[in-house]
Design a protein around this nucleic acid. Structure first.
Lengths: 237, 237
DNA sequence: TTGACAAGTGTACCTCGTACACCCTAGGCT
DNA sequence: AGCCTAGGGTGTACGAGGTACACTTGTCAA
């Protein structure tokens, strides 16, 4: 009886609750560690219970991506295309910053869901409304590529260190030696990595660059390019 | 005896052979279907035999990426930076075109291997040799991002259709209906998708755009930007 | 020939996604 | 109120996958 009371007290699941729990769990443990079983446990149900709310894991991840999309600011309507695009991209970026797993999740999808199509459509709409020809808008969206989602394909920047060395943060001698080693093997990477001022000075090579700056640098480079082509009435023909 | 002869006739495995077999198998069945067990079967050994040559699956994929990198042309030394970068990127692109799984493999790595660092280092070297300041070279490499590997983060272009519809290639009526449906829901995507001439005219929406063109469009846009900043002596300070 | 090291094997364990058949409960109908 | 039913939740089980560990076999140098 108390058992039953316990059970009935428990809020019932629905797709939304499942997706939100999945997002929260992924925030915590990363998307690779997110399994149906782990998620079920978090929700205090048996794994198979989830399948009443999502078709399969693919569908779960699709749903999670949609949750993220909903966090992105809607496009501005009262400003120029450039400002609207720029702000929206940066808003997407900040959403992806809150959910570090999302980039991988988005990249792993290979069929667009309606939510994704809608997102892309509104981008296209902003360009068209800004006077871009459909032709130019098309190419420009391709050029934007993943940046539309707020990420560059960074992979790993030149400043990331091989994992073998990560474990020794409090060993200045070893670090200096490794730095010298890197400088021998990869002189150019070290040159450009050390050229930019560090925000984190206790590491010789690591985390030296401001990701946000790099992102906006590339974004603005592209936007400048778009603007020029647009002004010149560029066509692919 | 004949059994033994059979066995001894078999060439011995080594890391290189394992990696090459893995690349070939991934070319054939895709990287998702590539399992240690399947690869072992292909090589006619028991799964655990592979572990004598690769540390684990991570290591296997790292090795596969290195194989790909070796397929990319070395940098030109006798031409300007712009030409050198452009050619190399396009060479990387064609390697990735031959191995469609490679993009995903590269993206999934989160710690750079020496081969990867070396590849990036030679890019950096090309910029520096071209007279870029370390500062500008740094930002420019970030801007290049994944394009350095010959791919844009396409995700899915506006012309990709939801998978539910993929199965009916020979149903013009349904296709027309779906097109109308898309045009209602995603008018802007349809507008820009149909603006560019198709190379495949039997599909109303699909595969309309020339990926190579889009790639070079964005690449040149960036290279133009780089060139201007370089000429102006741009600094981040 | 022999001895030792490296290559290959067999078995077994754990984690995952998920099919299938079942039970239970809440909410609408009489 | 009592009943019925749809759909949420359960239990069990299977097959695929990565890989630890202990073992056997093959190769080659001394």
């Amino acid at each position: 009886m108390s058992q039953q009371a316990e059970v009935s007290r428990r809020v019932r699941l629905n797709r939304q609750r499942v997706l939100e729990a999945a997002v929260a769990l992924a925030d915590e443990i990363g998307i690779d560690a997110l399994s149906m079983r782990r998620l079920a446990q978090e929700l205090d149900v048996v794994p198979m219970a989830l399948y009443k709310h999502v078709a399969d894991k693919e569908d779960l991840v699709d749903g999670m991506v949609e949750v993220i999309i909903r966090e992105i600011d809607p496009p501005l309507l009262d400003s120029g295309w450039r400002d609207a695009i720029r702000r929206r991209v940066l808003s997407a970026r900040s959403a992806l910053q809150r959910h570090r797993w999302a980039r991988q999740a988005i990249e792993s999808r290979n069929t667009p869901t309606p939510a994704v199509l809608e997102y892309q459509d509104s981008f296209a709409g902003t360009f068209l409304a800004g006077g871009f020809t459909p032709d130019l808008a098309h190419h420009v969206m391709h050029a934007l590529g993943g940046r539309m989602w707020g990420f560059t394909q960074e992979l790993f920047d030149g400043t990331a260190k091989p994992k073998s060395e990560v474990a020794s943060p409090a060993n200045p001698a070893a670090q200096a030696e490794m730095f010298a080693h890197m400088a021998t093997l990869y002189p150019n990477i070290v040159t450009i990595a050390t050229a930019t001022p560090h925000d984190d000075d206790d590491s010789v090579v690591g985390r030296g660059c401001d990701d946000q700056f790099e992102f906006e640098f590339a974004l603005d480079l592209l936007l400048d390019g778009f603007e020029q082509l647009h002004r010149r009435g560029w066509t692919s023909a």
